[in-house]
Design a protein around this nucleic acid. Structure first.
Lengths: 339, 339
DNA sequence: GGCTGGCACTCCGGATACGTGAGTGCCAGT
DNA sequence: ACTGGCACTCACGTATCCGGAGTGCCAGCC
């Protein structure tokens, strides 16, 4: 059955009111607050249809209506426009991000900014290693048998690992290794490096082979195997605000949020295409059903190097949240493009 | 008034029972569970005295007794022995920490380990910059006018910052700067470096002065001004377990936990002497009254490079928690000593 | 003097009952 | 197709009641 325009209006009104008040909304209140030009009785009929179609439901007989996940979905897809940020919010973004010194700092500020802007839990994935290119590899001798391997990615990310050498090396040797590695790997996507790393061993003088072997091993670990990506989180206190429904449900949510692996799933499939909204049961993660996630990719220009987003109760202000997430992602993307 | 031994026994029993059951404990239950060799009536008299002295209180007339902050304090100071970890727990520590690859990883694992062991919120401060020594400073040319400055501290901590150069530099120049900086600063405590950095400018050839000036500025920021230390947090979900008392109080606690500045205060005054226990109102941070904090310093050998600890409801298992915090701190200290 | 059994008293928490009001579904009328 | 009217339902707040755990106090006992 096709829903006519008025029914869609009613659904939109229900979602908006419910998000604003957090209370089931009834037919009378609805006609008062929105100027639908019909009587409550008519609205009730429409509601009955909407309920039949699964867009809204009644918590109890003779209570108002509440949107279902399906209702929110329709609302997000067809009934709402992303609302532009207020100038104050735009200014807040700039103020907040101004003066960030390094990638850590950027990510940190971003996640707090998002949490504050949306008043929800914010999640930011560090630029993914697999989507970065090697900008430079540095070898720092700590002792004659120990090197610190520092990898600098074009996303600003810096990783370091300790390498134990099988035998002692002089400064010249280290320089040699450094040159070889950089010539081979600089500029390549991290996911493409493994075969290159394999070749490294054969490109150094016989004497340096054992050292290079040790180095290759660590390199492989650093570049590829170390799948575990990093995540920053903020605004968990906001969960305690949406008290009523949560209450007991809070615990599993907090637990899920501490599992980085779980969170990464949320960003696993970010497409450059744009913002993704997961509503309630659409979420694959058991414990996070009952919450919605608005996420998007970010990166310099059109490249996506990581994801960011927010998580909150399904009854969230979608247009506002989507706008905020997009704006912040874009801002951070520009920031990355500059450096 | 001095409390005789039996009264102390009663207090200890009350604390233990209350911690175990989370319910006010009455005189009858007390004599049953512990073998005090007196009647409930006698215990009641003792309780009356303990209450007068402020060690316990009644939530309501005709309810059992609950320890006050003062009661816990006495318990911790005089009535309890730190209980050694179980073999299973010791093994858990080793298993959990095994295979940590870098400092980030160590801190991460540590905080999760602590949270799991104590079933409370765990907090670990990264090795404090101000308590570290410079092990090595590396300059990595990213372009002709840009350097990445990487600082490696003896605590395993690695920080990096971008430096924009006033004019272009060749590879030799960079090597020159690197050598000068390292000769000057290597091995010195970070807090002692500022005067040394000031001198740097005059120790390079005239041509390199502008570059060195830029470098010095960033160095100062990195080494000293950047007071903001880093913090890792885990186990916030555990807060939701101690439900009853918290309930509404949860929000401000979560908020406080997100303020790194606030958390650092907790470790501001860690003395190498040992473990510190802050009970309820003893806590200086407004929002964290009502919680207790068990914290200790950690570091290689007897040196303290940072703090770690856990936070939970005042009704926590102090002996167990103290033991866990100490054991983990010690283990991590040993780990740092090795590297 | 310190300990104990007995006893009256307090008060929290859960169960039950009741009235109220918001909201609904349906129907007959326009 | 919309509306006004009406009977019905049910969550929620308030009031009341009851049982039980726990106390404070007192008189008696060792």
């Amino acid at each position: 059955m096709a829903l006519d325009d008025r029914k869609l209006d009613v659904l939109r009104a229900i979602v908006e009111d419910y998000v604003a008040t957090q209370e089931p909304v009834g037919s009378k209140a609805l006609v008062e607050r929105h100027n639908l030009r019909v009587s409550p009785a008519t609205v009730r009929n429409d509601m009955a249809v909407l309920e039949e179609e699964g867009y809204i439901r009644q918590p109890h007989t003779s209570a108002g209506r509440v949107p279902t996940d399906r209702g929110y979905r329709l609302f997000v897809d067809r009934l709402s426009r992303v609302k532009p940020l207020s100038p104050a919010e735009r200014r807040a973004i700039e103020r907040f991000m101004f003066g960030a010194v390094d990638l850590d700092d950027v990510v940190h500020r971003t996640v707090r900014l998002l949490a504050q802007l949306t008043r929800q839990v914010a999640i930011v994935q560090y630029p993914s290693l697999s989507r970065s290119r090697v900008r430079h590899l540095e070898l720092v001798p700590l002792s004659t048998t120990r090197l610190m391997l520092v990898m600098i990615a074009d996303t600003g990310r810096v990783d370091q690992r300790l390498v134990e050498l099988p035998d002692t090396l002089g400064a010249d040797d280290v320089a040699d290794l450094r040159r070889t590695i950089n010539e081979k790997l600089n500029g390549s996507l991290l996911t493409d490096t493994p075969p290159l790393v394999e070749q490294l061993r054969d490109e150094v003088p016989r004497l340096l082979r054992p050292a290079m072997t040790a180095l290759s091993t660590v390199l492989l670990e650093t570049l590829v195997e170390r799948k575990e990506e990093r995540i920053a989180l903020a605004g968990t206190a906001n969960l305690a605000r949406g008290l009523v429904d949560f209450q007991g449900a809070l615990r599993p949510i907090l637990e899920a949020l501490e599992e980085e692996v779980v969170l990464l799933k949320l960003f696993g499939e970010v497409e450059p295409s744009g913002t993704r909204v997961l509503i309630g049961d659409e979420n694959e993660i058991e414990d996070l059903r009952g919450t919605s996630v608005v996420s998007t990719g970010y990166g310099p220009g059109t490249i996506v190097v990581g994801g960011m987003g927010v998580l909150g109760p399904t009854r969230m202000d979608y247009p506002g949240t989507i706008a905020a997430v997009r704006a912040v992602a874009r801002y951070v993307g520009d920031l990355l493009a500059q450096s």
